[in-house]
Amino acid sequence: NFNAISTQLARDLLAALSYIEEDDDIWAAVITGAGEKAFCSGADLKERKNMTKPQMIAQRKLFVKMFTAVSVFPKPLIAAVNGVAFGGGLEIALGCDWIVAAENAILSLSETSIGVIPAGGGTQNMSRVIGKQKAKQLILTARRLTAAEAKEWGFVARVVPQAELMNAAIEEVASITKNAPIAVYQAKKAINFGVDLDLYTGLVLEAEAYNAALYSEDRDEGLAAFNEKRKPVYKGR
């Protein structure tokens, strides 16, 4: 089913995110799709066609919770897009911190072509990544882009051959996790929640995030390692 978002898939992704967030030994993660044909084709419309209205309302609440959990997740998430990423599938990827895509990937916020709108964060996250005008071009036309085109548009960070996708995504994670996790989490928080504030309020948020890192054991380790000319050993404390 091209990893379509069913009720069960939404529950499973929420459970996985909860596990990752609560495990202090996991500092970052990759989200990808099973197989090589699809990252995620969007909502499971076959499941939805037989739903009653109350069931659809309940599923919608679950989906909003899932999409929001991805977009506000406190630890770094890298999307490894391995095939088609349509509708809600691309919205999951956009909720991650950045996207690594296989050369054969096709990406689209396709919802307007079936009578709805991107409502898994697509209108908001895409606009924030590439700007309002370009986001309108993609969403109002339901345009499909190749991975290379998506990189040119500015919402895919890196394009690699399909066979190298997971290694590339793991490389991205490794480039993050060599740094102090508390500092990484606080920097992500300051960017995500500060970018739409007025400058003064954003600077206050940044100062609070800095203080959270400043008084950590990892900051002491980073300073000691710098002065001792060695690699730091961070513990996430």
Rank of each mutant, 00 (worst) to 15 (best):
D198T: 06
I92Y: 10
E47P: 06
F193P: 00
D25H: 15
A157L: 07
L145V: 08
L199C: 11
M51N: 04
S108D: 01
A169T: 05
A174W: 02
D198C: 14
I78N: 01
V100A: 04
A10Q: 06
T123H: 03
A4S: 14
V129H: 04
N227D: 15
W98N: 10
D196Q: 13
L165Q: 07
E208R: 14
L223H: 11
G154P: 06
F63T: 12
I106E: 09
E21S: 13
I182S: 02
K37W: 02
A102T: 07
S71G: 13
G194E: 03
L109T: 02
A209D: 09
G222F: 05
A101M: 04
N211G: 03
A135D: 05
A79P: 07
A207H: 15
P76G: 06
E171A: 09
A93M: 02
A150D: 07
G222T: 10
W153K: 06
I176D: 07
D196L: 11
L138S: 14
W27R: 13
A142M: 06
K178S: 08
N1R: 12
Q59K: 15
A180F: 05
S113V: 03
D218Q: 05
R219Q: 09
T112Y: 00
C96Q: 08
R230W: 03
A148C: 02
V233G: 04
L94R: 06
E22R: 15
S18K: 07
A69M: 07
K188C: 02
N179E: 05
K151G: 05
G202D: 01
Q133V: 04
E91Q: 15
G89K: 14
S71R: 14
R230E: 11
V100F: 05
I5F: 05
K151S: 02
K231W: 04
G89M: 14
F2L: 12
F67G: 01
C40Q: 05
R230F: 05
S127M: 08
